[in-house]
Design a protein around this nucleic acid. Sequence first.
DNA 1: CAACTGATTTTCGTAAACGAAAAAATTTTT
DNA 2: AAAAATTTTTTCGTTTACGAAAATCAGTTG
Lengths: 210, 210
Amino acid sequence: MNEAEFVAAFSRELKSLRLSNGMTLEELSRASEVSISTISKIENLQQKPSFETALRVARALKVNFVQMMEGPGLPQSGMTRRTITRAGEADTFRSDYYTYGVHATEIARKIMVPLVMRIRNRTPPPLADWSIHDGEEFVYVMKGVLEFHSEQYSPAILNVGDSCYFDSTMRHAFVSKGDGDAEILSICLSIKPFEEQARHSGDRSVQDGV
Amino acid sequence: MNEAEFVAAFSRELKSLRLSNGMTLEELSRASEVSISTISKIENLQQKPSFETALRVARALKVNFVQMMEGPGLPQSGMTRRTITRAGEADTFRSDYYTYGVHATEIARKIMVPLVMRIRNRTPPPLADWSIHDGEEFVYVMKGVLEFHSEQYSPAILNVGDSCYFDSTMRHAFVSKGDGDAEILSICLSIKPFEEQARHSGDRSVQDGV
DNA sequence: CAACTGATTTTCGTAAACGAAAAAATTTTT
DNA sequence: AAAAATTTTTTCGTTTACGAAAATCAGTTG
């Protein structure tokens, strides 16, 4: 999806959102401070909005802009999703240091990626193997003792029930410090600008409905 | 922050992002397929971008658009954040049915809201008390047996280690079905369009540095 | 079915974004 | 420090977004 296509999808979405909210052009015009004619032309793809105009109408429609960016026409359109992943049935894979169980793999275009991680290493990986990715990450310790390493901070010890929230653009790594492996729940944000998200194959989670 | 101010902040952000990536106008121009002059004028606030142009340069800079929308100038500018919340020190409050422990309250403009929840009720709340909010939610069962209710699906039983990912625009509620309370980790998305996020007062979590 | 009402689309003048190329500013080389 | 090379800003003609008002369309009523 290139930018022009995205703008078109956005514009079409405006109409369905406005109508599903039961709004007239005039109402939306007053709420957004964008003229009726402009909204009409945008909805009918006769005109592309300026950035400012796009923001105005998006806000007026109380659109969660992330959802709008993620993919016009998904959750707002009445198609709500739900996936259950059973404890033993997460998609698992191993790196040299951690074992990952990926949950909710059935939902393709989602914003959060939930991982149940088993930390097997007892010393920090070499810096080259530290994780780094866009967005933010939340880590919650479920078992064992975790030593959390990150670039700009000194290592922190986290016990069961402790958590850490950080910008994952900062390199980070985990070490198990207690008896045996540590187990954590890690939630990463996965939004990339526009790119389709990769769909996991070999998925074994339970998918409901739709 | 109104739309014009947001566009201005976005535009200023372009320059710092481009420079921190060590890119020239020409490089960014080729990558984004937006002319040099246009980028220059936008960076210097002599011109406001069209929606399409804004998308083009954002993508060319590999900007996570959510971060860009969230607040220009935050994480990309070398200011990475990290907050640790200790097990007993989460900000807690109770509803009639659940007890919430809010983690990472110190980070104000974040995307995920992590909650440790204790489910005390053994029957479903009345529909009026079910939760509903924008975005998506991930729930992971840590203790007990959870019955998960949601509008468009039949109730599901989740045991320890099971998880559920769903659109939280769908009304939902929890019930404890095992012996005693169930305990879950719930991550909600909190992005609203542009509005500043409320900052929790009475915060007791451990904040590290800037 | 004509007259009215409310909603949407089209028309048109004005203002503004856009890109190519020239001009200016900055950095590097000799 | 002049010359050359690179990078940024400005200029200017063309294209396009924008809003006010007119025109069209879609229901409703007398």
